[in-house]
Design a protein around this nucleic acid. Structure first.
Lengths: 250, 250
DNA sequence: AATTATTGATTGAAAATGATTGTTTTTGAA
DNA sequence: TTCAAAAACAATCATTTTCAATCAATAATT
């Protein structure tokens, strides 16, 4: 059996059950213990999993899971800058959509406007919004346990009651050819619907998202504007040909 | 069994019930006492829990303030009893509605069923539900800042996608003549809709609600069953003439 | 054919486990 | 309160499991 086949088995098992024993993997692949160990070594170096005594476990890219609460504290500063700029685009009397996730959440502290209405699908955004005194609508639907985002057909249906002046959505990958992508198809559909319902469309993404592409396609580059921060590691020229890109200073 | 698997069991138990005995953990994991002790040592060093004589307890990080809903700590014990009994009425494969508010929330710890689906309009209920692994749908709509409940026409519309085997709603006043009442007309309409969509209808109310009536009428007494606790201050006879009343022991 | 990469088996070392020990803490009856 | 029995504890040991390192055999590449 080829390494890539085994890798697939290993990662899929880990993905489904969080931890997997060496023995299970030997069973499942028919390979020897030594081989599996070597595979695990490689996959650990590639940061695809974490080796533990007796097997391997899923990589928890965040230090700890504070239940549903705020996590993903990576690139906070960048996200704050993006959020600040994005918030400056919003004007009084507008109705805007904020996507679930940390990036759009960073806009909230800077939303100092009267007569603003916010719609979101992220439970985490509700509390800061309400505390700011902003009238907030939450999209209904099934709750995605990991992220506290609303998804599913109920959420889509729920969305159709609204129209937005502007929407601000987060994204996992921005690729020159493949456009905006995200890992969860359910979320992808929702984002598409939001874009459809909005006059002005903004995608918020820190530089780490550029050049990457994820499983599920949301939209083409030209279908939304991009807000990001300047970074020497990312060449924006090719993206700027297709859409408006605002890169704020660090 | 691998350490990480045990860790998960241990932490989840502690998370749910605050303290856990060594014996319980031995039972639950099938590992020996020695092993569990060592696990607890490790987890204590990692600040994931606090060891106590006989087991371990949750680490009380800091004052968890619910800011959005200053939790109504009145009559907690009574509400717990009511919640416990109400939860015992729920069966597998059912789809139930839980009203926003502390009383219905008290049902959650006792909802130990497989294949249960919960719909709620209370944001506060989401986290405990999700942590229990219960598939949860949140009604969409406008958020009522004080209570974190979803209200308004959007919520009503959002509700119409569902049908419930049972619903459990909280109420502010139960009056012999005026029936069930609540102060907020918006909430009242929502509760009416929920009752309409449910097969079996339960109103949860501690004894302080009896004989009172509030601004907005939800339904007549006979339109729902009542779950409360026994109290010498309340004469239930007149209510029992009109509907089924279950008064659990204190 | 020679070289390189991958594999499975073997080895002693390291880690984890369960049982046992004697000690400390808790409990409850005097 | 005091004291003895019971329960829970940390420390230690022998056993089992898992580990990394090494080696020879096989497959792929040059």
């Amino acid at each position: 059996m080829l390494f890539s086949q085994r890798q697939e088995i290993i990662l899929s098992l880990i993905d489904h059950q969080k931890v997997v024993t060496l023995e299970e993997l030997v069973q499942e692949t028919g390979s020897s213990e030594s081989t599996i160990r070597r595979d695990l070594d490689r996959l650990e170096k590639a940061k695809k999993l974490k080796r533990i005594h007796g097997g391997a476990s899923r990589i928890e890219d965040k230090a700890e899971e504070p239940s549903l609460a705020e996590k993903n504290l990576r690139n906070v500063e960048e996200k704050q800058r993006i959020g600040q700029y994005a918030a400056s685009l919003v004007q009084e009397h507008e109705c805007i959509y904020l996507d679930a996730g940390t990036t759009a959440m960073q806009m909230i502290p800077h939303l100092n406007l009267e007569n603003l209405i916010v719609v979101t699908n992220g439970i985490q955004l509700v509390e800061p919004l309400v505390e700011k005194g902003i009238p907030t609508y939450l999209v209904g639907g099934l709750i995605k346990p990991k992220t506290g985002a609303m998804i599913g057909s109920g959420a889509i249906k729920s969305l159709e009651n609204y129209r937005f002046d502007k929407c601000f959505i987060g994204i996992n990958g921005i690729h020159e050819d493949w456009g905006y992508t995200t890992p969860d198809p359910e979320e992808s559909i929702l984002k598409q619907k939001v874009l459809e319902l909005s006059q002005e469309k903004y995608v918020l993404a820190d530089p780490s998202k550029f050049g990457k592409s994820s499983f599920s396609k949301v939209a083409l580059l030209e279908e939304a504007f991009i807000i990001t921060v300047k970074s020497k590691n990312v060449q924006l020229a090719s993206f700027e040909k297709k859409t408006l890109v605002k890169a704020v200073e660090k």
